[in-house]
Design a protein around this nucleic acid. Structure first.
Length: 437
RNA sequence: CGGAGCGUAGCGCAGCCUGGUAGCGCAUCAGACUGGGGGUCUGAGGGUCGUGGGUUCAAAUCCCGCCGCUCCGACCA
């Protein structure tokens, strides 16, 4: 993509409404624009990031045997009256009326709808277990939206739902999601730590929040430092095998949010291993048993012929929140530092001297070769001065930069710069291509 | 839902207290000089001062209502 043609409105100064670093950088780097309080438009560069994140989530859900579907954003109030949550949910639920004065709502979550879909279609235990998910916009009318996309009212969420005959089955589904979540966040370059958590208004008795550590986090968290070095991507996972040992390896270490914090257990850790920090919740998994299936009569015939209410769990990842959370975890004084896996482009190509014919030719040629090699490149072919280009490229945080300048063109080299760490190397265009391929 | 602010050009802000018809920096446009970390000079364009009402000879400025946005707390993915 040529920057001269790309819609990338970056800002030199910090917008006054943005207080935390990820929000400031998302506005400055041209990723998002605010539409109203807690509601954002995603501009081309931001949307690319959002789709990257979404795709990683999707791949890991699919790998764990979860099947994707898509439910609507608007739901009928009747559905929620059936579960009893229409009254309980309070003002956070955006209630609307259609032209026939029917009560509708913009879905804050989808337990009711998925339960009905499942109830109406599945009759026998022999069709279990099932794991379903979708990635859809949600709306929760927060009293106080803040921190940009980290606590918006409208947000993109991946929510999965498991259906099992009994608690043991639900536990297996829970474990699958537990492991899938570890892998999902690790692939995005995040250290997400599963922590025991309150189940909140959704109910249930088994729940972990996945938290990444960041100064601007909204929750106070406590954990064992060794968790940070656990590697989950290094080993192959067989989702059909017993995942309990892998889950236990994580779950047995101390890690808890404020509400579940046990000072005595925490104090038992050696001091050097105690981490007390702020955290951002990027995922949350629940087992909630028959909380919805019982009142909504979502039952199947069991092995002995009797009707059995389904044991369910739900599993959420804040997809749009992750974009902000990743920036909170990965930035420096000059801007965003995208982890490779979620970067909107892999490399930014800069023609350092816009009016130098030889530079222009070399840059154009390299741009063509990068594209031919299938490498996603944003090519700054504008007339800006070198300094402005560098600052802008650092701001948007692509993992690699290639600088084509008069010095290198003479010597037959380009400069390859790693955004994270800032290491630079002078090498031939071929070598740079090989390194990025 | 309690408390506190803010709304003036695309962005960041001054002017308001003490009323006299709007200004600065950046950005934009034109030209020149420049050319490896947001450059310099010259010139130009761009604002119903959030909105409705009131006071006044006169309102960005004073008073009242409304709308929007932000921050702290409570709440929450």
């Amino acid at each position: 993509m040529r920057l001269s043609r790309y819609f990338l409105p970056t800002l030199k100064e910090n917008p006054s409404e943005a207080q935390i670093v990820s929000h400031r950088l998302m506005l400055r780097a041209g990723l998002i624009r605010q539409a109203s309080a807690g509601i954002y438009s995603w501009l081309p560069l931001g949307f690319r990031v959002l789709r990257r994140i979404e795709q990683i989530v999707r791949e890991e859900q699919d790998a764990a045997g979860c099947q994707e579907l898509l439910m609507p954003t608007i739901q009928s109030a009747d559905l929620w009256r059936e579960s009893g949550r229409y009254e309980d949910y309070g003002k956070e639920m955006l209630r609307i009326k259609d032209r026939h004065e029917r009560d509708m709502l913009y879905g804050p979550t989808n337990e009711e709808l998925i339960t009905v879909i499942f109830r109406d279609s599945v009759r026998s235990y022999r069709e279990l277990p099932k794991l379903l998910y979708h990635i859809q916009w949600k709306f929760r009318d927060e009293v106080r939206p803040r921190f940009g996309v980290m606590r918006g009212r409208e947000f993109l969420m991946k929510d999965s739902y498991s259906f099992d005959l009994d608690q043991a089955g639900a536990r297996r589904a829970y474990n699958k999601m537990f492991v899938a979540y570890l892998r999902t966040f690790a692939r995005m370059g995040l250290k997400a730590i599963p922590m025991q958590a309150d189940t909140g208004p959704i109910g249930g008795d088994l729940s972990h929040e996945f938290i990444i550590l960041a100064e601007t986090g909204e929750s106070q968290v406590y954990c064992d430092r060794e968790l940070i070095d656990f590697d989950v991507l290094g080993e192959a996972v067989d989702y059909e095998a017993d995942l309990q040992p892998l889950v236990d390896r994580w779950a047995s270490r101390y890690a808890a949010t404020d509400e579940k914090h046990d000072p005595a257990r925490f104090a038992a850790l050696p001091e050097a291993r105690r981490i007390e920090a702020r955290g951002i919740e990027v995922g949350h998994i629940f087992y909630f048993g028959t909380k919805y299936s019982a009142p909504m009569r979502a039952e199947v015939s069991g092995p002995t012929g009797e009707m059995v209410p389904l044991h369910m769990g739900s599993y959420g990842i804040g997809v749009s929140r992750l974009a902000g959370a990743i920036i909170e975890a990965s930035h420096d004084a000059n801007g965003i530092v995208w982890p490779d896996a979620v970067a909107p482009f892999k490399v930014g190509l800069i023609n350092v001297k816009a009016d130098d014919a030889a530079c222009g030719k070399a840059a154009e040629e390299l741009y063509g070769r990068l594209r031919a090699a299938g490498i996603e490149v944003l090519y700054d072919d504008t007339e800006e001065r070198a300094g402005a280009k560098f600052a802008n490229m650092d701001l948007i945080g692509l993992p690699w930069q290639i600088l084509v300048g008069p010095r290198g063109v003479k010597a037959g080299t380009v400069e390859l710069k790693r955004r994270a760490g800032g290491e630079r190397a002078e090498l031939s265009a071929e070598a740079a291509l090989a390194k990025l391929a």
